[in-house]
Design a binder for these strands. Structure first.
Length: 397
RNA sequence: GGGUCGGUGGCAGAGCGGUCAAAUGCAUUAGACUGUAAAUCUAACGCCUUACGGCUACGUAGGUUCGAAUCCUACCCGGCCCA
């Protein structure tokens, strides 16, 4: 029933927006225009279930393929997950248990479902075919690659130079990812540029098994809130699990010069509009407002228009106008005289009592908009609003 | 198997007998300022104590010492070189 869309403009955008490199571009373009339904593969690493904006980029690309009517296939690396990938990390990955993987995937699906229509996807666990391979078969496949190739990879090289451990086990990873492509007969595989070697392994492997080699589409890498590459090991991610207010705020905290990049990579605002935005920035428009638009756009994608609007309003209130936001968490607590330190700790506004003292000392604590300057006793009444810093509020119920 | 170097706070990485709750960078938090949770500047950043101070921490377990992250022993884990 689903027809393949072969609109030239859409294909062009598919192949260029947020795309770092396509191998082989001509071939892929031809196939996309042919009207054939392509099998598009994306591997998922089940080690950490949190999807952040960086990891969402290939997912968005996948959605673009889906929108054109192509078949998308998730490969859950339940088997490779046990091995541990190395391509986007500079440290070795821990091995995972089956239970962990299962739990992680449930969480993953909940987030990925915000971008992709999961009902129209194939989801495959690669243990299905990988665990059946015999030693001689693995040997044969391993023969397709050389050690020099493997250690020439930037990440591996870096680790080697630094003197950290690279296990033999890790060399198996590209073989497996490559064999996945064979097993599902992939036409296209997506991945970040850091996946290059693994993606190419798929082509080699497919050729070996007399299949037509898959095309590869590598997406650009995303910069995080501190302008370095977005990665969970840097702690600079914007996670999809963030609730709207926080997500909005995090986006607002990116560096100004990343605005256009974010628009291009993680939204589907038409490219023509983005060009307009770019020139607005150049001609001196207030980046704050444009960034707010971006934040709004991103929150909208994951939570819908209404919640995005609320998040946006709350942000303005809280930071621009220094007002108290509408939806504050309520806390039930005995109405009596409380020592301010105990009170802050009890309401979980601070992580420890030392922390509470610090906050008071720094002048970060406000009760009903009145600054608390010294450690003292507070008469707690319901409806009272306690504030720590600009971002943490609690209302006594 | 032999030699050798190392395992430090969320991460990276100094310290190598007292002045070490442990430099510095990143991350985090607060304050000032502002265009925002940008940028910049200032400060904080184990836990408990109003404070004095106390407690727990530098791979694990013991030991030497008035005193150990620092020295010794064993063990566990890792790097490099040799075989």
């Amino acid at each position: 029933m689903s027809k393949i869309i072969t609109d030239k403009k859409k294909i062009k955008e598919l192949l260029s927006r947020g795309v770092d490199e396509v191998i082989n571009e001509k071939d892929l373009e031809k196939k996309l225009k042919s009207g054939k339904k392509l099998r598009v593969k994306l591997g998922i690493d089940p080690t950490s279930p949190n999807i952040h904006l960086g990891r969402a980029i290939p997912l968005l690309k996948l959605k673009d393929f889906q929108d054109l009517g192509h078949q998308i296939i998730f490969i859950v690396g339940d088997f490779t997950g046990v091995i541990g990938d190395t391509s986007d990390k500079e440290s070795e990955r821990p091995m995972l248990s089956k239970e962990d993987i299962k739990k992680n995937m449930t969480e993953y699906a909940a987030q990925a479902g915000k971008i992709i229509n999961l009902r129209k996807c194939e989801v495959k666990y690669n243990s299905k075919w990988l665990k059946k391979l015999k030693y001689n078969e693995i040997g044969e496949q391993a023969n397709l690659f050389s050690v020099a190739e493997f250690i020439a990879r930037e990440n591996i090289k870096k680790r080697l130079d630094k003197g950290s451990r690279v296990s033999l086990r890790e060399m198996l990873y590209p073989l497996m990812q490559g064999y996945d492509s064979v097993a599902i007969k992939a036409d296209v595989e997506l991945g970040g540029t850091d996946q290059r070697f693994n993606l190419l392994a798929g082509r080699k492997m497919q050729e070996h098994f007399k299949q037509e080699p898959q095309n590869i589409l590598m997406t650009e890498l995303m910069a995080g809130t501190d302008s370095r590459k977005m990665s969970s090991s840097w702690g600079n991610t914007i996670d999809l699990t963030l609730e709207p207010n926080n997500m909005f705020g995090k986006v607002m905290s990116i560096s100004d010069d990343l605005i256009v990049k974010y628009f291009t990579l993680v939204t589907r605002v038409p490219m023509d509009d983005i060009i307009g935005i770019e020139s607005q920035i150049k001609s001196g428009a207030n980046p704050r407002d444009i960034k707010a638009k971006l934040a709004n756009e991103i929150v909208k994608m994951f939570y819908g228009e209404k919640k995005a609007k609320t998040a946006s309003d709350n942000f303005d209130k809280q930071f621009k106008d220094n007002e108290i936001p509408d939806d504050i968490k309520e806390v039930k607590i005995e109405n009596k005289k409380w020592d301010i330190i105990e009170l802050l700790f009890e309401t979980k506004l601070v992580s420890s009592k030392s922390d509470a003292k610090r906050m008071v000392k720094q002048g970060a604590v406000k009760i009903d908009d009145k600054k608390i300057i010294s450690i003292s006793e507070i008469e707690v009444k319901s409806g009272m609003i306690i504030q720590v810093g600009k971002r943490k509020f609690v209302k006594i119920s």
